[in-house]
Design a protein around this nucleic acid. Structure first.
Length: 581
DNA sequence: GCCGTTTTCGGCCCGACTGTTTTCAGTCG
């Protein structure tokens, strides 16, 4: 049983317990366990009891339920709860403005168990008869039902960033003196964003009027003096919060989250006799404010180093901040090269020359041109002869772009059985090879693992491209033993790619961090199919930061000579570990 | 249901906005 299924089950249990009106802390325990499991790199279903109990937020009971689910595929407690409330009621619970109290009331008083039944009752004016629900609430519920499709799902980080920039530009024009900061999951660089949070520092309530009047606003969910929420066309929810300058740091911290990080931080504050909210950090005894103007000051007052937003997920960053052992994260400007891009020779939109000129303009010292190999016929992939001719054209351009070295590479398909799409002689004649899976994603995990291991056994494979094959919001990763593959990559010196395409971001933060423990080195690559897409590396760098990676972990932060020397093909052969390799 | 730099019991983060109310409950983030 995979982590997502386990997390989904705990999430449902939490929802059902809320409907029941159970102890809020018990509910929180299930919810935080779901979140932890969902982001755990290894399959927790395979862990033994001892290892399970070491997972934060998993105690005796939850460990037992995980083992029950992993071994039987079922959870008696979950089924017991589902006997009390129909599973369809959970859809009602997801509606904007409908919480557990309302959903339980609807079910108990009117027998409403589905969104359709709720819609019918609302249209018939039956809801307003219930205690605590009036005509306005009834109308809001009908609206929420209409909008639920739009409300579903999350959005790509890059899209969210573009939208945030647009909204902030609009607000900034109306209020030039106010500082606007995108916060929430966008500031943390989370791969998808559920909504969009913007913080305004030092303005007045008229800012809220400007915000809700933006032409993309479809519906105003809340409109107060310091907080407003709107739904935008396309299903986004956006929130604007206003705080005074003295609270800038506290508010940035508070609204950046994550929720789990904030809870842990406030817990720490309480233990120090302090209380933390979006306005500042104050002493419990006499109410004096000790920090709040800057984030740095706030963390310092709690005895912590400032935590980069990308790390604020309650995954050990507070302990590291307390011990002054946070990593020096790779920075956005530290990439010196890009090792994955396509040209018109296969499915790219621009020529080698155009890509090289754009890379030079970005200040890169080196790039590898890596068009597709022949198995990807759809993309006009190159066979051995074309690959070598193409390589000659790439190399012939060296000297033409000052400061930039072009490497002749290939993105070589990993075939069904782990063989490579081009012969060894051809691969050996190139400067750089990234090997990727583009077909047969549904192989059994064991088969997929062996496929990747076999590909890495080829001495000319320098890197594995988009190692898990997932497409954000569209296609799950193919399943394989990441641990085993990462261990082999670390041993052979094969780099794993952090692919920066906005809907790939593959490896992701959790997997990259786990792979690093095996000594793996990474490449942050654009996989650009046009000159414009070279800039996507910013998202890959953000993933690397979320994975706690420093410059040393990223091969393409090195100058050309050091980069070359670190490539698998130029490293001394690893000590033989037996015939199996 | 979890957890321990006061603790194996008794805690567990905090505030804005809305609607239905006459002082607050529910929802959301």
């Amino acid at each position: 049983m995979d982590n997502r299924t386990l997390a989904g089950c705990f999430e449902q249990i939490a929802d059902l317990l809320e409907l029941k009106g159970e102890n809020v802390f018990k509910i929180r325990a299930y919810r935080s366990a779901a979140e932890t499991i969902g982001a755990w790199a290894d399959p927790v279903g395979a862990l033994d009891d001892l290892a399970l109990r070491a997972v934060p937020g998993i105690g005796k009971d939850l460990a037992a339920k995980i083992r029950e689910l992993a071994s039987t595929g079922r959870c008696a407690y979950h089924e017991e709860l589902l006997a009390e409330f129909p599973v369809t009621l959970l859809e009602v619970l997801k509606l904007q403005g409908v919480g557990p109290k309302t959903a339980a009331l609807l079910f108990r008083a009117l027998g409403i168990a589905t969104v359709d039944a709720l819609a019918a009752a609302a249209r018939a004016g039956q809801l307003r008869e219930l205690k605590g629900i009036g005509p306005k609430k009834e109308a809001l519920i009908l609206k929420a039902i209409d909008e639920r499709r739009l409300d579903q799902g999350r959005h790509l980080l890059a899209e969210t960033a573009t939208l945030a920039a647009e909204l902030i530009a609009h607000l900034q024009q109306q209020a030039p003196a106010v500082t606007f900061v995108p916060v929430g999951s966008l500031r943390r660089g989370s791969e998808t964003c559920g909504d969009l949070d913007i913080l305004a520092v030092g303005g007045d309530a008229t800012l809220m009027d400007t915000f809700v009047a933006h032409p993309r606003v479809e519906r105003v969910l809340a409109h107060g003096d310091t907080k407003s929420s709107v739904r935008l066309q396309g299903g986004y929810q956006a929130d604007l919060r206003l705080v005074p300058p003295a609270s800038r740091g506290a508010a940035m911290q508070y609204f950046t989250g994550s929720k789990a990080h904030n809870i842990a931080l406030r817990d720490r504050a309480l233990r120090l006799g302090l209380t933390l909210n979006e306005y500042g950090l104050t002493r419990l005894d006499d109410g004096t404010t000790v920090a709040g103007e800057t984030e740095e000051g706030l963390y310092e007052a709690l005895g912590l180093a400032w935590v980069p937003p990308e790390l604020r997920e309650d995954r050990g960053e507070l302990e590291a901040a307390a011990g002054q052992s946070l990593p020096a994260l790779v920075s956005f400007g530290s990439l010196r090269g890009d090792l994955h891009m396509h040209t018109t020779a296969s499915d790219g939109r621009d020529t080698i020359e155009a890509m090289a000129a754009a890379a030079q303009a970005r200040g890169y010292a080196y790039i590898a041109i890596t068009d597709h190999s022949k198995a990807l016929a759809m993309a006009n992939g190159l066979d051995e002869r074309r690959a070598l001719e193409h390589a000659a054209r790439v190399r012939a351009l060296n000297g033409r772009y000052e400061g930039l070295t072009l490497l002749a590479g290939i993105e070589c398909d990993i075939l069904e059985d782990g063989r490579l799409d081009l012969d060894d002689e051809c691969l050996a004649a190139l400067d750089f090879v990234v090997a990727s899976v583009h077909s047969r994603f549904n192989q059994e995990p064991r088969q997929m693992t062996d496929r990747l291991l076999r590909a890495m056994a080829c001495p000319w494979v320098d890197a594995i491209g988009h190692p898990t094959g997932r497409l954000l919001l569209r296609r799950d990763a193919y399943t394989f033993a990441l641990d085993e593959v990462a261990a082999a990559a670390g041993r052979h010196g094969v780099a794993l790619e952090i692919n920066s395409q906005v809907d790939r971001l593959d490896l992701n933060d959790v997997h990259a961090r786990a792979a690093r423990t095996h000594g793996v080195r990474f490449l942050v690559s654009s996989d650009a199919h046009s000159t414009a897409a070279l800039g996507n590396v910013q998202w890959g760098v953000q993933v690397a930061r979320r994975a706690w990676l420093d410059d040393d972990a990223i091969l393409n932060t090195r100058p050309l000579d050091a980069f070359r020397a670190a490539l698998r093909r130029h490293r001394p052969a690893p000590v033989s570990r037996g015939a199996s390799e």
